[in-house]
Design a binder for these strands. Structure first.
Lengths: 111, 111
DNA sequence: TTAAATATTAACCATATCGTTAACTATTAA
DNA sequence: TTAATAGTTAACGATATGGTTAATATTTAA
């Protein structure tokens, strides 16, 4: 069993949760504070905090502080894991061309 | 919180497990029997059977019987969920162009 | 300097997930 | 028709996941 790359493992694990995909959707528009995200998900701050930790660990988001208030944490998307996932997806999708090849070989053998 | 499409929910949930991604990788080459997949994953047949059920439920794979032996079940990949996932991924990745727009607007306001 | 605000980590609980072995169904082979 | 084969479903246990509230920094405001 070829182990799929560990990189996309944390990415897919992070994306498997609907709350975290909701965060991704929100961050597509613009960076947001942790509190905003918790409110948007109608969820306690600690619960969101842990989701953000998972997204951070998978490097899907990054954290920063606004210059005026060091208590707040602003989160924004990072493109790399999505790029890596897309690369893997494209590989998988090539199975279809492989299917064509297999059919071609089958037709050859058949003739 | 915009709920991300339910379609990709079962897809991502299915892909979040490394064993199931291993199955996907194997099926990229060619269709396989349930028993082959269990052996490749060094896992009991019941365990693999349930992974296959998850992949089937998400329509990532489909089942068929060989014409000569109706006991066996052959599994092969289905492209649709991967296509849907790629579409979602592309939408997410457009956040980057959005970021550029935001920067442009910021620069305008700055001038 | 004391209180409020922002967010995290800690502790806890309910449920889901993933593996095992045992039991069962369906089909093929002896 | 009886036994073997291929696979699934059932039952169970260990661990992971995701939510809650309480406690803990840390920074800002009064």
């Amino acid at each position: 069993m070829t182990p799929a790359l560990t990189v996309i493992d944390s990415t897919l694990a992070a994306l498997a949760d609907p709350t975290r995909r909701g965060v991704i959707d929100l961050l597509r528009e613009r960076p947001r504070r942790a509190g905003e995200l918790a409110a948007a998900a109608r969820m306690s701050a600690p619960a969101m905090s842990r989701h953000l930790r998972v997204l951070r660990a998978g490097k899907l988001i990054e954290e920063s502080h606004p210059e005026n208030d060091a208590r707040q944490r602003i989160y924004q998307l990072r493109p790399e894991p999505f790029d890596a996932l897309q690369t893997w997806l494209e590989q998988v999708q090539q199975f279809w061309t492989g299917q064509l090849d297999a059919f071609k070989a089958f037709a050859e053998a058949e003739h």
